[in-house]
């Protein structure tokens, strides 16, 4: 196939652009944990509320200094609706839904997970900046979808 030399040059440049993006993604993934939430753990949605893993909702301090936040996402609220975590320490969120698919998006952070009945979503991140973050459900879940929100309060110190 004859390819015009200018077009051939462009094809190499385009391939170079693609390699640049792909390698940035791989580098980010492995050098500073640039991953999407990808936890694999199932749960029976019909008994999720009373499952031992979700019996106690809210913030738990672990012995190693990290913080775990257990949340139930349901039509149309997050339980608990207000979450307080310390700044600068790893926070692990564990979220499930007993009804339909929801989203768990912490606005102005990289926290953005799909919450699916039958599965436990989990991801760990650290909040450097204290402040009040809005949590929104970003996956349509019915007529109250736009009312579904929570607050994440990241506190200095402790």
């Amino acid at each position: 196939m004859h390819v015009d030399p200018y077009e051939k040059f462009w094809m190499f440049a385009a391939a170079g652009l693609i390699v640049l993006f792909a390698s940035s993604v791989v580098y980010g993934a492995f050098s500073y944990a640039g991953h999407p939430p990808s936890h694999v753990e199932t749960i029976d949605p019909s008994t999720a509320r009373t499952d031992p893993r979700f019996a106690e909702l809210g913030v738990v301090e672990k012995p190693d200094g990290s913080v775990e936040v257990v949340v139930l996402a349901q039509m149309f609220s997050f339980m608990p609706g207000e979450i307080r975590v310390p700044a600068g320490r790893p926070v692990t969120f564990r979220v499930t839904s007993p009804d339909v698919i929801h989203g768990f998006q912490i606005v102005a952070s990289n926290g953005n997970a799909t919450i699916v009945p039958g599965y436990v979503s989990q991801f760990t991140t650290t909040f450097a900046k204290p402040g009040e973050y809005l949590i929104v459900c970003n996956e349509y879940c019915g007529l109250g979808h736009h009312l579904m929100s929570g607050r994440l309060i990241v506190e200095e110190g402790a």
Partner: peptide, 28 residues
């Protein structure tokens, strides 16, 4: 489905690479 539970990060990364390849025919 990047943010979905139940699917491992590794497979999501493989689909990412395939997605970047599909930019190429549009660049041409």
């Amino acid at each position: 489905q990047f943010t979905d539970p139940g699917i491992t990060a590794g497979w999501k990364l493989i689909h990412t690479m395939n997605t970047y390849v599909i930019l190429f025919p549009s660049f041409i």
